[in-house]
Amino acid sequence: MSTCERCGAEFHCAMADAPPGQQPTGAPGETPCWCTLLPPAVPLPGQAAVGCWCPDCLRSHIAALKAP
């Protein structure tokens, strides 16, 4: 499990949370992370760029970027 750098929630990241004994490679055919299905949301504010955010935090951030 990964830990959200923004709120501390635990979540699954397909890029970081490979099956036990296996390192993620990013090779074709591997399941992409859920975040790859969302619109790009970079740059992240402040120090948040250090690690991943959970689905709720990332979706919230994307919604705030789209707000007028």
Rank of each mutant, 00 (worst) to 15 (best):
M1W: 00
M1D: 07
S2Q: 08
S2I: 00
S2P: 01
T3L: 00
T3C: 01
T3E: 03
C4K: 00
E5D: 12
R6Q: 13
R6L: 09
R6W: 03
R6Y: 02
R6F: 01
C7R: 05
A9V: 01
A9Y: 00
F11R: 01
F11G: 03
F11H: 11
H12Q: 13
C13Y: 08
A14G: 13
M15S: 15
A16T: 06
A16N: 05
A16V: 12
D17H: 08
A18W: 10
P20C: 03
G21K: 11
Q22P: 00
Q22R: 15
P24W: 09
G26N: 07
A27N: 12
A27I: 02
P28S: 11
G29F: 07
E30V: 07
E30P: 01
T31W: 02
P32M: 07
P32W: 04
C33N: 02
C33F: 00
C35M: 07
C35Q: 05
C35L: 07
T36I: 08
T36Y: 14
T36G: 09
L37S: 12
L38E: 15
L38F: 06
P39L: 06
P39A: 13
P39H: 03
V42Q: 07
P43M: 09
L44F: 10
L44Q: 14
P45E: 14
P45M: 09
Q47M: 11
Q47V: 10
A48F: 10
V50C: 05
G51F: 03
G51W: 04
W53T: 02
W53P: 00
P55L: 08
C57E: 00
C57R: 00
L58C: 06
L58Q: 09
S60F: 04
H61Q: 12
H61I: 03
H61K: 09
I62G: 06
A64M: 11
A64F: 05
A64G: 05
L65I: 02
L65E: 11
L65Q: 15
K66H: 08
A67C: 04
A67I: 00
A67H: 04
P68M: 04
P68G: 13
